[in-house]
Amino acid sequence: MTVIDTAPLAGASASVPTLVHLSGDIDIFSTARLRQRLINTLDHSTDLLVVDLSQVTFCGAGGIGVLIGVQGRARTRGITLALTGVPPRVARLLRITGLDHRFPVMA
């Protein structure tokens, strides 16, 4: 699992979303690291954090749990966490868990 953070520098226009690209497998081996990286990203995120999942090759319940947890943290800072590039298999898991309406999805 890798995280590529293309967040604009602090102080950038709030109208510019902060984009984070995730790739690889998100499983219990990588969730702790992912959670920390995403929380770090919140420190310099604009008020819209977009997480790109298009290169994610595996995501289980633990991965969904991280996204929910980070979304909660983001909200307390006034940041909206949205998803983009959701692979069909991840979309299906979100649907199965009834969490598909929890995340705004960007085209």
Binding site: D27, I28, F58, G60, A61, G62, R89, R92, L93
Partner: peptide
């Protein structure tokens, strides 16, 4: 393919719980 993916996730969840 959907059934294979279901199994991959199911086995992963079972192992995550046991580990």
């Amino acid at each position: 393919l959907d059934e294979i993916e279901d199994l991959r996730i199911a086995v992963d969840e079972a192992c995550a719980m046991l580990l």
